[in-house]
Design a protein around this nucleic acid. Structure first.
Length: 271
DNA sequence: AAGTGGACCTGCTAGC
DNA sequence: TGCTAGCAGGTCCACT
């Protein structure tokens, strides 16, 4: 589920409702990717500030510090008025006066980490080195060109690394490259200025569209029923190996890059 | 510095 | 029908 649009939709779904709440309890399930980094009981009595997002991380100000949260590959956050019994995959509950925020994460690649202030503790390290936000004015074609110019890796991997621009995960990176007409294997330093302009635009458009449509992605689409189908981003290439390109009918190809699947149209996307 | 590959953990699906 | 191998939306870390 969680690439940037899903994380942002998650943030919007509970940020205002939890703002100002006081923590009255914490329940921990199985260990997540990293330890919480503080005594859970020490969070009791703190007040929740405005939730922010940086890349695919969420930041919740809490007392003198805050919690940095990540959904990993399979995580989701739910905020409800009352705490329901915890299921096998519910690994963190923040119980507050306004409701309970619950992290559910079957694969446990997600994390909730206490940070004393995002200055120099371990949580800060997680945010260091992140690229620009895709909707930030700093993310221009020229910026992308300069960043890619120093990279010899495939442009798809450069996008995925998050060190140039954050938020485009495997699905949206594939989709953005399709929109921009760029072969995912193209070396970063071989992407022209003009194509960088198109790519920057394509990344922003792809993420923005997914965001407006509610941020859902493909696997959820299959699992969802009824009207939820109307809110899905239609993938042009992702997970469509062998199926005809929606533009030119050439069969979509699947290749492996950095141990992850890439999908592209060999006709519409060029090196 | 940049690039590569392994690691973390569980659930689902295609294929035999 | 039942088992197994392979695959999955992320990203850190150690090593070259």
């Amino acid at each position: 589920m969680p690439e940037l649009p899903e994380v942002e939709v998650t943030r919007l779904s509970f940020a205002e409702r939890i703002h100002g709440a006081s923590v009255i309890g914490v329940r921990m399930g199985k260990p997540l990717r990293w330890p919480l980094g503080c005594e859970p009981a020490s969070l009791v009595g703190t007040t929740v500030g405005p939730i922010a997002r940086r890349g695919k991380y969420l930041w919740m100000p809490l007392g003198s510090g805050g919690l940095l949260m990540h959904l990993g590959m399979s995580g989701s956050l739910a905020f409800g008025p009352q705490a329901l019994p915890a299921g096998a995959h519910d690994h963190f509950d923040l119980i507050t006066t306004l409701g309970t925020l619950r992290l559910t994460d079957p694969r446990r690649f997600g994390a909730v980490v206490w940070s004393a202030g995002l200055a120099q503790d371990p949580a800060a390290k997680l945010l260091a080195g992140l690229g620009v936000e895709p909707f930030d004015a700093a993310f221009t074609g020229e910026y992308l060109y300069r960043a890619l110019h120093r990279r010899r890796v495939a442009v798809k991997l450069a996008l995925l690394s998050g060190s140039i621009v954050v938020g485009a995960g495997n699905i949206y990176a594939c989709e953005a490259l399709f929109r921009a007409g760029i072969d995912p294997r193209t070396r970063g330093d071989r992407v022209s200025r003009a194509r960088c302009e198109r790519l920057a635009l394509a990344v922003r458009e792809t993420l923005a569209e997914a965001l407006t449509l509610g941020g859902s992605t493909l696997r959820d689409f299959r699992d969802a029923h009824g009207m939820s189908g109307a809110f899905q981003l239609q993938a042009r290439v992702y997970d469509r190996a062998g199926m005809p390109c929606m533009v030119c009918a050439t069969p979509i190809r699947r290749i492996v890059q950095g141990q992850r699947s890439s999908y592209f149209c060999p006709t519409c996307q060029r090196r």
